[in-house]
Design a protein around this nucleic acid. Sequence first.
DNA 1: TTACGTGCAAAATATTTGCAAGAAG
DNA 2: CTTCTTGCAAATATTTTGCACGTAA
Lengths: 143, 143
Amino acid sequence: MTHTTSDYATRIRRSGFRLTPQRQLILDAVCEGGGHTTIEEICARVQAKAPSINRSTVYRNLEFLQRLHLIVAAEIGGETVYEIAHNRHHHHLLCQGCGRQIEIGEEALASALTAILRDYDFLVLADHLVLRGLCGPCRAQTE
Amino acid sequence: MTHTTSDYATRIRRSGFRLTPQRQLILDAVCEGGGHTTIEEICARVQAKAPSINRSTVYRNLEFLQRLHLIVAAEIGGETVYEIAHNRHHHHLLCQGCGRQIEIGEEALASALTAILRDYDFLVLADHLVLRGLCGPCRAQTE
DNA sequence: TTACGTGCAAAATATTTGCAAGAAG
DNA sequence: CTTCTTGCAAATATTTTGCACGTAA
C-alpha cells in the first residue's frame, strides 16, 4: 500500500520521463487513498499541499502514471477510481452498506475464470475487479 | 432479448406512469442493441426515427426505466451501457479484440462467489458483471 | 381534466487541448 | 541546453435542471 518514492522515481526516469513535484504529489495522493481514490479526492489532496497545481495536470498525470503501470484504474458506479499498482493481481470487495473495502487475491476467482476459459473459450483478463455487496456486519444489521 | 411492448406498457401503467412514444422508442433502441448499448447509440437510434426527441428526454427515461427495472446499467471502461432487463441474472464476457459479447449465466461465477462468502464473510451482490478479455479467435490472431 | 412528460435552452460538470513559459536532467 | 511538463484559458463533452406547453389516461 505504501510506495517508496525512490523506486518510482527510478522507474519514471528509466522510461525517459521526468520526476516532477507534481507527479510525486499526485502519486502520494493516490497512495494516501489506501484503496480506491476518485479524481476529486486526488485533486483535493494535491491542492491542499500545492494549490497552484492545475486540474489538467492531474488528469494528464493520472493517464501518464497508468501508462507506466504505476497506478491502475477501475470503475465503481460509473466513476473512475485509482490506486497504486500492486505487483500482485487482486480484486476488491466493496461493501455497499458501510463502504468498507476488502482486498482479495486473484486466486479467489481463479477457478471460475479457468472454467470460463474451458466452457466459453474466453480468457478473462480483468484484473482488479470490483465486486459490490454486503459484509457480514452490514448483513446482520439489515436483517 | 426481445421485449413485448404490451408487457412493458402494462408494467409502466401499473406503476402509475405513462407510456409515451418517446419511452417506447427508447426502450426499442435499448432492445435493438442486443447486448450493451451506450447513450450515444441510443440517441442515434431514437433520433433516426424521431429527430425531435431531445437528449434530455433520453437521459431522463433511461433513469426512469432503470427505476422500474425494465432496463439495467453496467459500466464498461468508464462508460455507462444499458440493456433490457432479464429476469435471469447473468454476466457478460466482452472481447477486447473484436468487441464480441458473450452472455454467461450467473452459475458460471456462483461457486467463486460462494467461496468468497465463506472465506471473507462477504455477500457479493454484483449481478450483471462485465468481464473483459479475449475470445478464442482473437487469442489465435494475437499469437 | 389533471398531473405526468417533453422540448428547449441554459446551467452545471467533467474532460481535453493549444500554447507559451518553466524546469528536470 | 534540450525537450518534457506545467499552468492557464478556452474548447469540448457530458449531464442536469427550470419552465411553459403538450398529452396520455
